[in-house]
Write a protein that binds this DNA or RNA. Sequence first.
DNA 1: GCCGTCACG
DNA 2: ACGTACGTGACGGCA
Length: 597
Amino acid sequence: MKQGSLFDPPQEPPEKTHATVGTARHSLSELAFDVETTGNNPFADDIVGISLCRERGSAVYIPIRHVHGPNLPEAPAILKPVMEDPSVAKIGHNLKFDILMLRREGINVAGPLFDTMVAAYLLNPGKPNHSLEDTGLEYLQHRKKPFLEVLGKRASFAEVPLAEAVPYAAEDAALAMELKNTLFPLLEDEKLSDLYFTIEMPLISVLADIESYGVKIDIKRLSTLSEELQRELDTLQSSIYGLAGQEFNINSPKQLAKVLFEDLGLKPGKKTKTGFSTAVEVLEELALTHELPAQILNYRTLYKLKTTYIDALPQLVQPATGRVHTSFNQTVTATGRLSSSEPNLQNIPIRTEWGTRIRETFIAEKGHLLLSADYSQIELRILAHLSRDKGLMQAFRDDVDVHARTASELFHKAMPEISGDERRFAKTINFGVIYGMSAFGLSQALGISPKDAAEFIQHYFATHSGVKAYLDQTLETARQQGYVLTMHGRKRQIPDINSANITARQAAERIATNTPLQGTAADLIKIAMIRIHDLIRTRKLRSRMVLQIHDELLFEVPEDELELMQKLVCREMEGAMKLSVPLKVDMGWGKNWAEAH
DNA sequence: GCCGTCACG
DNA sequence: ACGTACGTGACGGCA
């Protein structure tokens, strides 16, 4: 445990803290703060206090709804001028959370941000988590008192006596302040400051706005779909039991494997760690000769859609807003992408008929439309730019169908002669290039032999020497430096790139070639989001960004702003970066997400 | 709490 | 000989 005044309890009794903050604010330039609550739900009504840290040794805690000691109903009024002062920098760990909490108290946080969680993430995006506990331990060797230890058996932080709550809360803010002092120079050393201050910090407010605005869901329609789907599942279940000659739990891979491979004696395919696989590729193969696996596949698909989306989404509608408020996580992925959770709105179905029905339940408010804008072939365009491959660049400059063009080269045919199957092959290979394809992986994806797949790959690289040279160069740099970079300097360590373990090394090589492409696309859309958000605000538009799905942005727009927003969004997305090939954005709009696509 | 599975880009 | 396409999150089953 690191000792020193910083992490000691504040000297002043909490009753006096508001006066300190109130009078000192004009001399402040930096303020670390942390909102204390009982959970991590931004819409839970449980904000109980704010801890502040201005300088070494002066961490304080201002109770707002603490049930013990001084409950300060005037606390928001005291905090508001400081929190909204743009000349005061705000330092904290996971600031988006604090910003959302304070917004519910009527406080709109302004000023430069320094989020220590995001800083720790940029320094090492591969780590499984960037909690204050772990980050404090790693960089300051400081063992923070665990929240659950302070909470004990109490139901809420508000019930923790002030004598314990104050030092705990103050420690959080003080730790963030100290982490800032440590992480800031590290960001500079790693050349991550530009990315941090021009992209990641401004993005925090954008994400906070998207999350608090939410997206509207047609609950009634979902409930109708649920009933309809249940009837279909019931029918399928009876039919499956009949074909199996017994009743069993269809959702249990273990029981299903027994029925298929033991009781019915079907030929097992690949194995998992725990037994014979019943995954979709295996069942599809079996479905060619048996009705049962075909029906299992159908059952699985429908069951998934019902449990994960149709039945889950209505429960996540916030009564206060009547909308669904996802969390966009900024410090999860190793590549720089966002992720979405509770609920994940980045994996809403689209590929099947039922998927379309589910997307139809994402709707616009009365008098509004949903506007969808997605980048066309963004990762291949970035590959074209980074590799300067002549053919690939020309394809995008001429705005031709890039998969058809690849097929034309692979099969030595003019583009108009390319069949659907040939284009599908080429499309899979283009994906393969982005993913760091192996002959085996490609053979699985195409359903051909590894030998044939190897020939396709060889032929692809023979006709795309620029791509080949770029990928080789990326690997060489990764081997020498142990990391790869995106165009904006986002860094991902690749620890296994020189591993003696072949499997681990090959996996590392795929990561090394994929990350600059996926990561640059992530940088790009983040820039577009910040600019569009800024324009909506400065032009006082009523349109709102509601979702980001990696290469797509979804907006809810008043009908009379549709035309303006189409132009604005297209211009900003296509102009977010200047590449050696044009960027292209496809757009659609409608009363629901299915129509907008 | 892990595993298998499957929804998305 | 070996396991194998990149990145996620959520569900139910089962120990």
